[in-house]
Amino acid sequence: MSLIEVNHLYKEFQVAKRQAGLWGALRSLLRREYLTKTAVRDVSFAVNQGEMVGYVGPNGAGKSTTIKMLTGILVPTSGEIRVNNLIPYKERQKNARQIGVVFGQRTQLWWDLPTIESFELLKQVFQIPDHRYKQNMATFADILGLDEFLNTPVRQLSLGQRMRADIAASLLHDPLILFLDEPTIGLDVLAKERMRQFITEINRERGVTVILTTHDMSDIEKLCRRMILIDNGQVMYDGELVLIKDLFGKERVLIVDLEGETDSFSVAGAQLVKEEGNRKWLRFNRELTTASQLINRISEKYEIKDLTIKDTEIEEMIRHIYEKGLAVYEMNSCRIENNKF
């Protein structure tokens, strides 16, 4: 029996159709027309105790909607969810005791109070026994470096500090599962790294199951063995990260800013995917061409002002899956394999 089971989950929203102009606005007062938007479409997966799963997809893919259903905030249209044998939307309060939730952009701490007061409040709200609270606070103070800002009001914390405080707050009551919605959004490189280390540690030391959504692929690469890729409400891929990296990770994009006349630009070993004036986007396979080869080739003909190299982004990856038609059964086979493991 898996810790989290999701079967044929659907979530539909009714969106009022907007009508243009004054006449339309008046008409919509009388009779509204609705469009049904399916945010989550037949999603199924299972997560075992102790797993760390990346739930990935572009903006508006249905990530947050799924997380909201798993945490009991939203009621599904149809399908089944069990979180440690509880149905979240029916037993929301019970479910709340066994999960921790962090919404990256929105703090759950009390804005005007010193950070420590938020922890004390949560201790009351979750009825955390004294000794557990003390132990946890000691641990988190240690690995998250909370001590430096425990007495600072939350509104004065930096984003990195606030995220650390938020994560500590979500773990105080020893949840089985931790949901992280965009935990690294807006953080600088150092703070991101620190956050990732902490998440890994929580997962390893405490055995907390972690589900995290992100649109930053490097989060997933550093943290998760398993990835569920979702687009347009549907699961596109569910399996080991290694596999998908093999498929797409070889591709890189080189972005160069050139000097001078560059109208009929082309270079061997790379495909021009986009251009804006003198800025060119070039896709290349790093097993066939190295970046330095490519740069050499370009600089023979043009003067390079600036350049960056990027990994394939999620949107790009999804496009690939459509194009190359990664079959559904392949994904399923990955899942079965994963469950066995």
């Binding site: 909201k68 905030i73 709340a96 919404f103 952009q105 929105r106 709200v125």
Partner: peptide, 17 residues
């Protein structure tokens, strides 16, 4: 701004909270 969700992930009644 979405901060209402926090009242729904705590084990007490949202109105009361």
């Amino acid at each position: 701004n979405g901060t209402f969700d926090r009242f729904l992930v705590r084990p007490i009644h949202p109105f009361f909270h």
